[in-house]
């Protein structure tokens, strides 16, 4: 088991955002977490990365308890996140953004990795010297994914990669996610776009107001009547 979350809760002041979540991700899996706006998806991902304080529960990564570990040490262990809203370093060049993605690895083969990212997203190569803030939304999303991959993550956390993108670009981003999974990256994908996410996921979880209400294989969830009604609008 690569990621093992049990019973975690989190609060914003007096408001409880997570009410005892259990989630597991195995090595090589693509696991999707779907749910409406405000269900706690982003809070959960931030909790895994260590940038959102948890009030109870434990997180284990590769068997090791990381519940109290600071955020930077988790990146060094191999947990990388593509945050909601992309969060690129706007005034810095595309290349510097990528270089900072490899911050925890220092020196060695950063240039080679950068070349791999440019092969994967050629548009980034064309714009490598421009400030990241001048890129379009889709390009920024590609940059955010590439930046996270620069750390050689063992677990990639993706928060709403399709948010605010045109349908054609959404397809492109999801294709990239599938390609990553096929290359062996373990992925935990959080999405409001439940249909697209469950369609490519091995397994899925459904989150409602801070609790997991359903979990099953992606296919089964897609076919479930309740899911169809609540999230797919079918």
């Amino acid at each position: 088991m690569l990621l093992e979350i049990s019973g975690i809760t989190s609060h914003y002041g007096r408001i409880q955002a997570l009410r005892g979540i259990d989630v597991e991700v195995r090595e090589g899996e693509l696991v999707a977490l779907v749910g409406a706006n405000g269900a706690g998806k982003t809070t959960l991902l931030r909790g895994i990365s260590g940038v959102q304080p948890l009030t109870a529960g434990t997180i284990k990564f590769d068997g090791k308890d990381i519940t109290r570990m600071p955020a930077d040490a988790r990146v060094a262990l191999g947990i990388a996140q593509v945050p909601e809203g992309r969060q690129v370093f706007g005034p810095m060049s595309v290349e510097d953004n990528l270089r900072l993605g490899a911050y925890r690895r220092k020196g060695d083969d950063v240039e080679a990795d950068m070349k791999r990212m440019y092969d994967m997203f050629p548009i980034l190569f064309k714009k490598r010297e421009l400030p990241a803030g001048t890129l379009s939304g889709g390009q920024q999303q590609m940059l955010a994914i590439a930046r996270a991959l620069m750390s050689h993550p063992r677990l990639l956390l993706l928060d709403e990669p399709s948010m605010g993108l045109a349908p054609l670009l959404v397809q492109e981003i999801f294709d990239a996610v599938v390609a990553l999974k096929e290359a062996g990256t373990t992925i935990f994908l959080v999405e409001q776009n439940a249909y697209a996410a469950l369609a490519i996921a091995d397994r899925g979880y459904v989150l409602e107001t801070g609790s997991v209400v359903m979990s099953d294989s992606g296919k089964t969830l897609l076919a479930d009547e309740r899911i169809k009604e609540a999230y797919l609008g079918l």
């Binding site: 990365s49 260590g50 060094a76 990388a80 969060q87 690129v88 370093f89 900072l100 911050y103 925890r104």
Partner: peptide, 21 residues
């Protein structure tokens, strides 16, 4: 790299933390 990391922190603290800075 560390200088750039300091700049990055000033531009976007959350993202900087997620990069392991």
């Amino acid at each position: 790299l560390f200088g750039k990391a300091m700049l990055a922190t000033s531009f976007n603290r959350l993202a900087a933390q997620l990069m392991g800075i």
